[in-house]
Computed example of a mutant assay.
Amino acid sequence: MKKRYANLLLMVVTIIWGGGFLATDGALETISPFYVMMIRFLGASIFPLVLGWKKLKKLSAVQIKQGVITGFFLFFAFAFQTFGLVYSTPGKNAFLTATNVVFVPYLLWFIYHKKPTRKEIFASMICVIGIALLTLKPNALFLGLGDILSIICAVFFALHIISLERYGAHTDAICMTALQMITAGIISSICAFLFETAPSTIPLRAMGNIAYLIFVSTLLAYLLQTYAQKFTSANSASLILSMEALFASLFSYLLLHEVMTPLMMLGAILIFLSVIFLEYRPKKNKNIKN
C-alpha cells in the first residue's frame, strides 16, 4: 500500500475517534472508567481473537511480547485519558491528549536516536497551535489534576504510535490488534475489580455508546490504525491522528449544537495545513535538457 492511502485510512480513524470522544463522555455518565475500558477492550478483542486464532498460535515469543507491550501502552493511554476527562473539561482533555504529536518525534529521538527534521518539528508545532485554538477556552491556562493526567496520557499515546511503527510491521494486523485488545482488556478488568464497583444496571442510552466504543471506535479503528501504520511513519501518523480533536469539535457542533467561533475555524485550518505541509513532496522535474 502507498503511504498516501495509509494516511487516508488514518484519516478515517480520526473521524471515528471524533465520534468516540462523545460516546466515551456519554458512557462515563453511568459507568465507572475502568469498567468502560474493560467492556470496550474485551468486547473488541473477541473478533480478532477468533479470526486470527490460527495465526496467533504460530506467533513467536518476541511477537507476542511486542503485542503485549503495545497493549500495555494502549491501556495506560486510555486510563490517563479517561480519568483526565473526569477531572478536566472535554476541550482541554482533547487538546492535551492531541499533544502526543509533539512527543512522538522527541521520543523517537530519545529512544531510537532518530533525530526529527525541521519540517517535522515545524509541522507538529503548527498542529498544536491549531488544536489549542480549536479546543481551549480563554481560562484554560491553569493546569489542574485532570490536565496533568491528560498530558501523561499523551505520552503513552505517543509511545503506542511508536510501538505500532516498530512492532506492527512484523506481525499480522489482526493478530497485533488481538494482542493489544486482550492485554488492555485484562489490565482494565483487574483495575475495575480492585478499585471500582460494577454497575447494577446499564441504561439503554449507555448501551448505544458502548456498542459504538466496542465495534467502531475500538475494533474497527485499531484494526485500521494497526494496518495503516505498516505503510507510514510514526510522525505522520501522530500528526494525522491528532485531527481527532478537529472531528470531535465538528461532531459537537453538528450533534450538540456547540458554537464554532472564528478562532476555532482558524485552528481547524492550521491543523489541515500542518498535515499537508508535512506530507507534501514536490515532484522532481524529469525534463532534463541534454
Rank of each mutant, 00 (worst) to 15 (best):
I240H: 10
A184T: 03
V216D: 13
Y167L: 09
M181C: 08
L59T: 12
D147P: 04
Y112Q: 07
A140F: 04
A158H: 08
G67K: 07
W17A: 01
R205Q: 12
Q180E: 14
Q81T: 05
L133M: 15
K114W: 05
K284R: 10
I210L: 11
P282F: 00
M181I: 00
S236K: 15
I214D: 14
N287I: 14
I269E: 10
M243L: 15
K230D: 01
I126G: 13
R166F: 09
G84C: 03
P105C: 05
S236N: 15
I39L: 05
T135V: 07
T30A: 11
A77G: 14
T97P: 01
G18M: 10
A248G: 08
D172F: 02
S60R: 03
L159Y: 07
I126L: 15
P48V: 12
C191F: 13
H170Y: 06
I121G: 11
F193V: 09
L164M: 14
A228V: 00
A221G: 10
I131Q: 04
M181T: 03
G84M: 04
F277E: 14
A158W: 11
A44D: 07
T117P: 01
I182L: 03
F73R: 06
N100F: 15
L179P: 04
N7I: 11
L164K: 07
V101A: 09
Y280F: 13
G130I: 09
I121P: 10
A234P: 12
F34H: 10
V50F: 13
M181N: 15
C127K: 03
P105I: 11
S189F: 15
A234I: 11
R40V: 13
V36D: 07
A211G: 12
A237P: 04
S233R: 13
L213V: 03
